[in-house]
């Protein structure tokens, strides 16, 4: 639902990076998207196509998405587990004293020019 807003942020950052590097056209943008980042990759690419084609510098520019798996770590037993499968409760010791290690990234990794 907020993918279009995110796309506007990406466009702004990519245009800025391209200008700083003296680039006139960007061929691809590579994103790191965490599994639990609340971004729906399909929506993001749809919004991207619509908005990027309105920018001269980004016409036809492809949005490539790397999905980063979510991993949670347990503060009590110290072990790590898959966030999506087990949620907030540690499957090893049942503790709720857990926190997300990675998987909420919404990050521009690189651009291809």
């Amino acid at each position: 639902m907020h993918e279009l807003g995110i796309v506007f942020y990406i466009i702004r950052d990519v245009k800025q990076a391209a200008q700083e590097n003296g680039v006139e056209h960007v061929n691809a943008v590579v994103m790191n998207i965490g599994e639990v980042s609340t971004i729906v990759p399909e929506y993001l690419t749809d919004c991207w196509r619509w908005a990027a084609d309105k920018e001269e510098m980004l016409k036809g520019c492809e949005l490539k998405i790397n999905i980063i798996p979510a991993v949670t770590t347990c503060g009590d037993c110290g072990r790590e587990y898959e966030t999506v499968k087990y949620g907030k409760t540690c499957p090893h010791c049942n503790s709720a004293n857990t926190w997300l290690l990675k998987g909420n990234e919404v990050e521009i990794k690189e651009i291809e020019v």
Binding site: R12, K109, V113
Partner: peptide, 16 residues
């Protein structure tokens, strides 16, 4: 000839 420019920046960084 593809040139890759690394950015490594959170989309939320500017807003934050």
């Amino acid at each position: 000839d593809v040139r890759v420019i690394e950015i490594k920046k959170s989309v939320f960084a500017d807003n934050n």
